[in-house]
C-alpha cells in the first residue's frame, strides 16, 4: 500500500500533467504574469486537453502566460477578477468563444480558500448593492447586508513555488505568492512547479508557507522567463 503522499516528485512536465482530461476545472496561480507556473501552463497546451474551465485572477496578459490557452482554443470558460489589457480574452469574450465570469478579487480568493477549508459558502459584504449581488441570496447580520458566495473547488491546481521539499512543503518569493497557496488547497490534485527542489528538512517547519498536505505532484523547473508587465524603475542618486 502506498499513500498519495509518497513519491510526489516527478521527472517531467508531461508526467506531472498526465492526469489532466478534457472539461476539467483548472485553478492557476499568478497575479498577472507574476508568480506564474510557466512551464505547466505551456505543458497544458502540449498535453492537448480542451473545454477547460480556467480559474485565474487575470487569465494571462500581453499574449503571455495563460493567454496561450486562449490562443490554443482550449478554454470554454474563465472565472477571473480582472481582464484589463488582456486582448486575447477581450476578443474571445466578445465573440462568445469563451464565457467569462467576473468576480471581485477578494471574493475569488475567499471562494478558493473556502473550497480548500471545507466551507461550502460564506457571507461577504463585498459587492452588496452592485451587479455582483444579482441572483444571489443575501442576509442581514447585525444590521449589515451580506451576499452568500459559493466555494470554488477545482479538479487541478497549477502552482508556482520558489522552493519545495520532497514532501511538497512550499515557500514562495515576494508577491509571486498571490493566489498560489489558496489554489493549491482548493483542488483535488495540486501540481507544483518549483524553482528549487530541496530535501525534506532543508526548510525549517516554521518557515513553510504552505504545508505539503496540499501538494500532490512536484516538478523542478530551474529556468523561468518571469515576464515583466510594467518595468518601473528610478534613477540611482
Amino acid at each position: 500500500m502506498v499513500g498519495r503522499h509518497a513519491n510526489k516528485v516527478v521527472a517531467s512536465i508531461e508526467e506531472a500533467l498526465a492526469p489532466l482530461t478534457d472539461g476539467m476545472t483548472i485553478l492557476c496561480g499568478g497575479f498577472g504574469l507574476s508568480g506564474n507556473p510557466e512551464a505547466l501552463i505551456k505543458g497544458v497546451v502540449a498535453r492537448g486537453v480542451k473545454d477547460l474551465t480556467l480559474v485565474s485572477n487575470n487569465a494571462g496578459n500581453m499574449g503571455k502566460g495563460l493567454a496561450l490557452w486562449l490562443k490554443a482554443g482550449i478554454v470554454k470558460k474563465v472565472i477571473c477578477s480582472y481582464i484589463g489589457g488582456n486582448e486575447d480574452l477581450h476578443t474571445r469574450m466578445a465573440s462568445g468563444e469563451v464565457k467569462v465570469e467576473i468576480t471581485p478579487q477578494g471574493t475569488l480568493a475567499e471562494r478558493l480558500r473556502a473550497a480548500g477549508a471545507g466551507i461550502p459558502a460564506f457571507y461577504t459584504p463585498t459587492g452588496v448593492g452592485t451587479v455582483v449581488e444579482e441572483g444571489k441570496e443575501t442576509k442581514e447580520i447585525d444590521g449589515r447586508r451580506y451576499i452568500l458566495e459559493r466555494a470554488l473547488p477545482g479538479d487541478v491546481a497549477l502552482v508556482r513555488a520558489n522552493r519545495a521539499d520532497r514532501f511538497g512543503n512550499l515557500r514562495f518569493w515576494r508577491t509571486g505568492r498571490n493566489f498560489n497557496p489558496v489554489m493549491a488547497t482548493a483542488a483535488k490534485l495540486s501540481i507544483v512547479e518549483c524553482d528549487q527542489l530541496v530535501d525534506n528538512g532543508a526548510i525549517s517547519p516554521d518557515d513553510v508557507h504552505l504545508a505539503g498536505i496540499f501538494v500532490h505532484r512536484i516538478v523542478h523547473v530551474a529556468e523561468h522567463e518571469n515576464a515583466f508587465e510594467f518595468r518601473t524603475v528610478r534613477k540611482r542618486p
Binding site: 508577491t175 518571469n226 508587465e229 510594467f230 518601473t232 528610478r234
Partner: peptide
C-alpha cells in the same frame, strides 16, 4: 496582490518581476 510596506520603484537593474504592486509595476 499581497504586500504590506510597499517601497518606491527599484533602482535600474534591481527590478524583480515577482515583486510588484497591484498595478503590476515593479
Amino acid at each position: 496582490n499581497g504586500l504590506l510596506g510597499t517601497g518606491p520603484f527599484p533602482f535600474e537593474g534591481e527590478e524583480d518581476p515577482n515583486l510588484i504592486n497591484a498595478g503590476k509595476q515593479t
